[in-house]
């Protein structure tokens, strides 16, 4: 909602020192805890959930996740896989990453996401949507930055989202489809630890327009509302079919 107000706000222009802190690239690790996600599957019995939890305990501990990166400027951001994300940790085997590029333009208030889901490439193109954030009272350090806690919910996937944003990087960007905080989001926690996206490093450097350009991708253009409806439908269908929906849609 504050989006409507943002224009009314008088922003004191950042000093030179600040200017350097508004462009750069963040490297994240995105760790998906599948056995936790399975505990949310209503069609599984407690016995099945416990079995999954116990048998995959050691894999979960070794789960190093996938590498993601976020390029950001005061007005734009682009989030996608980082370099060798499609390779196994000890190399030697690579897999194909499904298409995933998420961009935000805070100036023009646009968002455009290229996402492969449900066996198709979709381009979600719409005006910028940001959630209503609740600001918490915790601070902690992520990748060398002191971050504050903020929380919101995703009503479509019925998830709680916890974000830790840097107090001294005044950019509203963030990983995944999340943004709109007074500082850059360096850590994201989906649904109480089901998925964690944690910054490993922040490099402040000028980001060129070239880097922020979307590659030409064929895909079906849809709106945010279409996307939400699709996700909602898939989740309902999968649960009815006793399948984990998050094998084919991003958590």
């Amino acid at each position: 909602m504050y989006r409507l107000l943002i224009g009314l706000l008088l922003l004191s222009l950042p000093s030179l020192v600040m200017a350097q802190k508004t462009e750069g690239v963040v490297e994240y690790r995105r760790i998906t805890h599948w056995s936790k996600i399975y505990t949310r599957m209503t069609y599984l019995s407690q016995e099945q959930k416990d079995r999954i939890m116990l048998r995959s305990k050691n894999w979960e501990e070794d789960n190093k996740g996938e590498k993601m990166k976020l390029l950001f400027t005061p007005t734009q951001s682009l989030y996608t896989y980082s370099g060798d994300a499609s390779e196994s940790e000890d190399a030697g085997y690579s897999w194909r990453q499904s298409e995933l590029i998420m961009t935000r333009n805070f100036e023009k208030e646009r968002q455009m996401d290229i996402m492969e889901m449900l066996g198709k490439v979709y381009i979600v193109d719409d005006s910028l949507r940001t959630p209503t954030w609740k600001i918490g009272n915790q601070i902690k350090e992520v990748a060398g930055y002191i971050c504050m806690k903020a929380e919101t919910t995703d009503p479509i996937k019925n998830q709680t989202i916890t974000a830790w944003f840097a107090q001294d990087i005044p950019v509203s960007a963030g990983p995944e489809r999340v943004s709109g905080l007074p500082g850059l989001i360096l850590e994201l926690d989906l649904n109480d630890g089901d998925v964690e996206i944690i910054a490993q490093s922040v490099t402040l450097r000028p980001v060129t327009a070239e880097e922020l350009k979307l590659p030409k991708t064929k895909g079906k253009k849809i709106t945010e509302a279409d996307y939400n409806a699709m996700v909602k439908k898939k989740i309902a269908e999968s649960i009815a079919a006793h399948e984990n929906p998050y094998w084919s849609i991003r958590y």
């Binding site: 909602m1 504050y2 107000l5 943002i6 009314l8 706000l9 008088l10 922003l11 004191s12 222009l13 950042p14 000093s15 600040m18 209503t132 954030w133 609740k134 600001i135 918490g136 504050m148 903020a150 107090q167 001294d168 005044p170 905080l181 007074p182 500082g183």
Partner: peptide, 29 residues
Amino acid sequence: SSTVMLLSPKDSSMVNFGRTDDKGAFTFK
């Protein structure tokens, strides 16, 4: 460059934010 946020007293949800200038001042109009 302090972060200044306005939250709803009801549920701490953020309604507006800004930064202080080099004199530490902020204004929400």
